[in-house]
Every structure is written in structure tokens, then in C-alpha cells.
Amino acid sequence: MSVKCGVDCCHYWNNNSCNASALEVNPMKGKDPNTSDDTCCTTFKPDK
């Protein structure tokens, strides 16, 4: 699966794509998701 990503400070980011072997997306804390703004990528790992 191809996943576009614009978070260039993530460890899995490579030229606007996510290179993680799996992707986890969850609701934002305290939100009942109705739009993509109410979700977050919990696969994010800061790039060192």
C-alpha cells in the first residue's frame, strides 16, 4: 500500500511517502472522529 506523508520530521518519511511496514491511525484524544482532522498517525516516530 502506498501512503502519502507530508511530515518530513518522521523517521519513516521518504520523499513524501511513509516507509513504515505498518500504519496505525487512531482518534485524537477526546475526539469522536467525524473528519480526518479528528484522527492522528500513531506510527509517527521522530527522526533523529
Rank of each mutant, 00 (worst) to 15 (best):
M1E: 15
M1V: 14
S2G: 15
S2Q: 14
V3W: 03
K4I: 13
K4C: 11
K4H: 11
C5M: 07
C5I: 00
G6K: 08
V7Q: 09
D8A: 14
D8R: 10
D8L: 02
C9K: 13
C9H: 14
C9N: 15
C9D: 15
C10L: 00
C10R: 01
C10F: 03
H11Y: 14
H11C: 05
Y12L: 06
Y12K: 06
Y12W: 11
W13N: 08
W13L: 04
W13M: 01
N14G: 03
N14D: 13
N14E: 11
N14A: 10
N14S: 12
N15T: 01
N15H: 05
N16I: 04
N16V: 01
S17V: 06
S17H: 08
S17A: 12
C18N: 08
C18Y: 00
N19Y: 00
N19A: 09
N19F: 00
N19L: 09
N19C: 12
A20P: 01
S21D: 06
S21Y: 03
S21Q: 07
E24D: 13
E24Q: 13
E24W: 06
V25R: 04
V25T: 10
V25F: 04
V25E: 09
V25L: 11
N26R: 13
N26C: 10
P27Q: 12
M28K: 15
K29I: 11
K29Y: 10
G30S: 09
G30K: 04
D32S: 14
D32K: 07
D32T: 09
P33Y: 01
P33T: 00
P33N: 08
P33F: 00
S36H: 06
S36V: 10
S36Y: 02
S36N: 09
D37F: 09
D37A: 13
T39S: 02
C40Y: 05
C40H: 04
C41R: 02
C41D: 10
C41S: 02
T43F: 01
T43C: 10
F44N: 04
P46D: 03
P46C: 01
D47P: 02
D47Y: 14
D47N: 09
K48P: 13
K48E: 14
